[in-house]
């Protein structure tokens, strides 16, 4: 055997800066997420967590630095970018299921239109995924007819239908009624166990403790801490992290 070059990290950001006008929202971000790792991103509101997440599939273009997914730099707009996005699953706070399509069609749509899978196969695959997230019986309904928790599970199934290499979650449970949070977290926990590479922005500390390999703490557009959940929750180094933890733990 030749000395194998180590597999590239699934996500790599180097020296990334992002501005909204004068507002510096990402400041010299450096992070690597190896394949199979689950990274939870924590931080106060407005610290740039969503922007970080959205930069990875170029829903937000950056002003400076390098972003690579699976060893390949992010292409500019066009076909190549669409191809990269197909490999990066994204789950939004507001679900964003296609309102005019049934749940099954939501899940089967991109495999047909982007991966050119035939319709029967895509449909079968979609039903399998809906079973995996536990909403087979909702397949023929429209998004507005589902509860928030069901919609978010459908949205996860829709992202998984593309067989992504990595999944990005931007506060997937923040828009849910409290009783529906757990069903979505359960799906995510299972995904993590199956070895999916995940970057999860969340305020669910329980999930961070149980499912994350790593916690990244952001504040004012900077990555302030990057450690294991254990270390972060029991012995945060920075004052900003201590302050943040103090606030959410007293809630």
């Amino acid at each position: 055997m030749t000395a194998a070059t180590p597999a590239p990290p699934m996500i790599r950001m180097e020296g990334v800066d992002k501005f909204f006008g004068d507002l510096h929202v990402l400041k010299d971000i450096n992070i690597e997420v190896p394949a199979g790792q689950v990274v939870v991103v924590l931080g106060p509101s407005g610290s740039g967590k969503s922007t970080l997440c959205r930069a990875i599939n170029r829903l937000e273009p950056i002003n400076q630095g390098v972003i690579e997914v699976d060893g390949k730099p992010l292409p500019a707009e066009g076909k190549a970018l669409a191809g990269l996005r197909a490999d990066v699953g994204m789950v939004f706070q507001q679900f964003n299921l296609f309102a005019h399509k049934t749940i099954a069609d939501n899940v089967a749509l991109a495999p047909v239109k982007v991966r050119k899978m035939n319709k029967g196969e895509a449909r079968q695959h979609a039903m399998g995924l809906l079973e995996r997230v536990g909403i087979t019986d909702q397949a023929e309904k429209y998004p507005a007819q589902l509860s928030g928790g069901q919609q978010q599970r459908a949205a996860i199934a829709r992202a998984l239908a593309m067989k992504p290499k990595v999944m990005l979650f931007d506060e997937p449970t923040s828009a849910l009624d409290p009783e529906m949070v757990q069903e979505v977290l359960d799906v995510m926990t299972n995904l993590a166990k199956e070895g999916m590479t995940m970057l999860v922005v969340t305020h669910e500390m329980g999930f961070a403790r149980r499912a994350a390999n790593r916690v990244v703490f952001m504040s004012d557009g900077e990555i302030v801490e990057d450690s294991t959940p254990d270390v972060f929750f029991t012995a945060p180094k920075s004052d900003r992290a201590k302050d943040f933890l103090g606030k959410i733990l007293t809630h």
């Binding site: 599939n57 829903l59 076909k79 669409a82 191809g83 990269l84 996005r85 197909a86 490999d87 990066v88 699953g89 994204m90 939004f92 507001q94 964003n96 299921l97 296609f98 309102a99 005019h100 749509l109 991109a110 239109k113 982007v114 949205a155 829709r158 992202a159 593309m162």
Partner: peptide
């Protein structure tokens, strides 16, 4: 969010417009 979700799945601008945005 409708167009964003579609773009995030890898649909092209024309597809997003034709399949997701215009029908709605």
């Amino acid at each position: 969010g409708q167009a964003e979700a579609a773009r995030a799945l890898g649909l092209s601008f024309a597809q997003v417009l034709r399949i997701i945005v215009l029908p709605q």
